[in-house]
């Protein structure tokens, strides 16, 4: 464990907590893409298949349970909670996220660390996470006024993977044979997808005006 990875995990945890705060306290999911939440639930479900077979540390297992529990409960809230589901605008959240799942699955079958079910599922989760934010970014472009919590949620979610890139650089230089092209390339693509969001997020923060993404 290094400071970059711990900061990354804490940033990721913070993004989940901000989203849960928004949904649980103001009972609203306005501006939140259910499709991105469903993709993330699938990412964690396919990545943490080893949660009961490979014990790494209490920290690792605890965080996995938190990410699994929060992602599925957020999906449940938006789909089934009588008040929250009313603030979900189905007509705006139109990204065909199933078109993301198939290519990621095919790629995982071709490019993986070992051709076993768990490893293919793990690679699938890495590729899927790289593109999981797309429905959310498309929705943000359509959302006229993005509320602060939604903006912070997306920012933290993008920042966590950027911190992981620093973690991979650190581990490359401090650990022998630490090379993981699958996570490195996917993590870089994932972070680059946030590039224009980060730009507009900092602009709105610097000029102290409402966050607005150009359509």
């Amino acid at each position: 464990m290094n400071i970059f990875r711990l900061a990354g995990d804490m940033t990721h945890l913070a993004s989940v907590l901000v989203l849960l705060l928004k949904i649980h306290t103001i009972k609203s999911c306005a501006g939140i893409s259910l499709k991105t939440q469903e993709l993330y639930a699938l990412v964690f479900a396919t990545r943490y298949l080893d949660i009961f077979t490979d014990f790494i540390s209490l920290y690792n297992t605890t965080m996995k349970l938190i990410f699994l529990g929060s992602s599925f409960s957020i999906v449940w809230y938006i789909r089934n909670h009588k008040i929250v589901s009313r603030s979900y605008d189905k007509s705006q959240d139109t990204f065909r996220h199933y078109f993301l799942i198939i290519p990621c699955l095919l790629l995982a079958l071709l490019v993986n660390e070992k051709f076993t079910f768990k490893e293919v599922m793990w690679a699938f989760s890495i590729y899927l996470e790289a593109v999981a934010i797309l429905p959310q970014l498309v929705l943000l472009q359509r959302t006229r006024n993005i509320d602060n919590l939604t903006g912070q949620y997306v920012f933290l979610l993008g920042a966590y993977r950027a911190l992981y890139i620093l973690n991979w650089i650190y581990r490359y230089f401090t650990e022998t044979h630490y090379v993981h092209w699958i996570t490195w390339v996917s993590g870089l693509v994932q972070t680059l997808l946030y590039a224009d969001f980060f730009y507009y997020y900092f602009e709105s923060w610097k000029n102290n005006k409402k966050l607005q993404l150009p359509a």
Binding site: H12, N60, F67, Y164, T183
Partner: peptide, 10 residues
């Protein structure tokens, strides 16, 4: 198990 077989990152 070798180190790189178990994914130690979240």
């Amino acid at each position: 198990k070798e180190e790189n077989e178990v994914h130690d990152e979240l």
